[in-house]
Design a protein around this nucleic acid. Sequence first.
DNA 1: ATAAAAATAGGTATTTATACCTATTTTTTG
DNA 2: CAAAAAATAGGTATAAATACCTATTTTTAT
Lengths: 214, 214
Amino acid sequence: MDIKIKIAIADDHPLVISGLHHILNNCPDMEITGSYANGDELLAGIAKVQPDVLLLDIQMPGQTGDELAEIICEKYPDVRMLALTNQDNVFYIKNMLRKGVDGYILKTTGEEILLEAIRTVNKGEQYIETGLQEKIIQDTLQAKKDLSADPVLSRREKEILRYIAADLTSQEIADKLFVSKRTIDNHRMSLLLKLGVKNVAGLVKKGIQLGLIE
Amino acid sequence: MDIKIKIAIADDHPLVISGLHHILNNCPDMEITGSYANGDELLAGIAKVQPDVLLLDIQMPGQTGDELAEIICEKYPDVRMLALTNQDNVFYIKNMLRKGVDGYILKTTGEEILLEAIRTVNKGEQYIETGLQEKIIQDTLQAKKDLSADPVLSRREKEILRYIAADLTSQEIADKLFVSKRTIDNHRMSLLLKLGVKNVAGLVKKGIQLGLIE
DNA sequence: ATAAAAATAGGTATTTATACCTATTTTTTG
DNA sequence: CAAAAAATAGGTATAAATACCTATTTTTAT
């Protein structure tokens, strides 16, 4: 194994960068081709030499990590990206993955995991830290949340809510169910009241939260 | 260990029921207290003797598994429920968990997993089959889906879409951004066009799909 | 530097949703 | 069986969204 994995780092914390230098320089199969403290530096640097793997933080001055990921994924599809950040929020993870990042690990992660993650994404595979996978599952199916709090919708109301979320107007729903438009409008009002929202946008979001839609 | 885990079964396939009988009768720490082929039988049976763990299928004549789960979770909070079904769709999994089920395994699952699942939910813990956990993760972060297909919204449009999904009216958004309501209305139109939907409900759903919201 | 795209704003009209009522019939439930 | 809840429908307004235009200024990209 002669050919080393070329690694670039984008992070605005000097300490993180020097820490990574220390770790990676001791790895015979890796070399650092550049480290950048903000988005502009990163884009300029990457234009000159493309790494195999880019370690990318989310919070940075100027462009944020997810914007950068999007640009790089578009312009340099051969560069694998590994999010390396403090954010353990599921929303951030989803977001980065969607923007084209290949892996996601936390800065609190141990050295071995870091190296494993780099090698994995370099092979073209996805790497999500185990703890975060757990978190995603828990977040996705936040089981049995307080039943008391969940609003009691009647079967008809649920049905209508599904139609509303399916883009139908009251008139269209009425035609489909062979009832008056006024009936549907009244159901709409009950739904707004019961779900404590003020308009269709709120209804759709609640419907999704309640698992009635999608 | 004298006290056996009392198990009830709700499934409309006689074969499944007899298979389960065969497996569970050979387990010294378990006993079957009843097996039911539909919702009414189940509710009647459970009213007489409450099992520790209920194995519950989703498709059944009359009430569906998720409706039954909801009822049982409400009336008999001490009964642990384990979904045992053919549905490996993430939507179903989420839905059952939300309705109060404690675990979810497939009928294609091996005997050892079945027993482990029963023992786990009996202890009050959650059990999701490993393969399904994987599936949930993949489903949640369906990474790098064809970028070509994803609509190019401008930064402003994304911002406005977020506000729309946050229940704000055009007027409210206009006030917040110090622009005319007409401007926001025009952005709304562009969003409808670009996202290929016809109203707010569609906008909200797309926004969630695109990861802009929630 | 120039072209393209984005953000801005207005005119005008129609459709849809929201709000607050009353009221009857049907279904559920104790 | 009686009471409660759900589903039905109408009256009347107003607010908001949708549709289809034109047009100017500002920003981005080649």
